[in-house]
């Protein structure tokens, strides 16, 4: 019998490259999460009292809520197009470990929806009058947090593939699971902005990422196989 001769890691690389190549031919999709993030964050000072001291106080919370909402919005696009045109079906028939291929898709998704937020977050924080010294912590925390969200969200997105109006269901599924990310992420950022050590919450975020990395790809693979029925 002929076996797949492409090494699994190479196959995962192909999936990653394909998704990035596709995204760069559709710029509007890539810029959507970061534009949404900037819009939400800009609305807060207009709605709140624009007192610098108040804005600096709420900066951490605003950045985190906007970042999580915008990457939640992007989650829906993770598998949708691939299901509609049949490529996800073909992905399950390659003889490669599906969990690894889906992990590659999730990484591509994070590069496109999470990484822009990591870069945009300090801009928003500084605009809110937060101390620029906290930027390193803020970027690390946002990077870890959006990565966890992408991984947990990939399970949710895979589970809701079969349902017609999956987006509400997807938010309901994913939101409770990412509460720890929001709590520790905002805490780390707030601590750093007040000049205190943010090590504790950052380690916890890192632990969450490792947990998500080791568990979610298998859950996503199982969910995709069920959803394709």
């Amino acid at each position: 019998m002929i076996l797949a001769t492409t090494a699994p890691l190479r196959a995962a690389g192909l999936v990653l490259r394909r998704d990035l190549a596709l995204a760069f031919r559709r710029w509007e999709q890539v810029t959507h999460p970061v534009v949404f993030f900037l819009m939400v964050a800009t609305l807060f000072p207009l709605a709140l009292n624009p007192k610098p001291s108040l804005l600096a106080d709420v900066a951490a919370g605003v950045v985190w809520v906007s970042a999580l909402l915008s990457s939640m919005l992007a989650l829906e696009t993770l598998y949708r197009a691939d299901v509609e045109d049949g490529t996800l079906e073909q992905l399950t028939l390659t003889g490669q470990p599906l969990a690894l291929l889906l992990l590659a898709k999730t990484v591509a998704h994070w590069i496109l929806s999470g990484l822009p937020l990591v870069l945009a977050a300090p801009v928003v924080a500084i605009a809110f009058g937060a101390d620029a010294a906290a930027n390193a912590v803020l970027m690390t925390a946002i990077a870890l947090g959006t990565a966890v969200l992408s991984l947990i969200g990939s399970v949710g997105a895979a589970l809701t593939l079969g349902s017609r109006r999956g987006s509400v269901l997807l938010s309901l599924l994913v939101l409770p699971l990412i509460m720890p990310v929001l709590i520790f992420g905002a805490r780390a950022t707030a601590l750093a902005m007040h000049g205190e050590s943010a090590e504790g919450p950052l380690w916890l975020l890192g632990a969450l990422l490792i947990l998500a990395l080791t568990l979610t790809p298998f859950a996503s693979a199982a969910a995709v196989r069920i959803s394709l029925e």
Binding site: M1, I2, L3, A4, R18, A21, L22, R25, R26, E84, D85, G86, T87, E89, Q90, T92, L93, T94, G95
Partner: peptide
């Protein structure tokens, strides 16, 4: 899966590629 090729109703082609 490796011994099998499946062509469904959908072509599994990406329009942008």
């Amino acid at each position: 899966a490796v011994a099998m090729a499946y062509l469904g109703h959908e072509n599994a082609l990406k329009g942008d590629l």
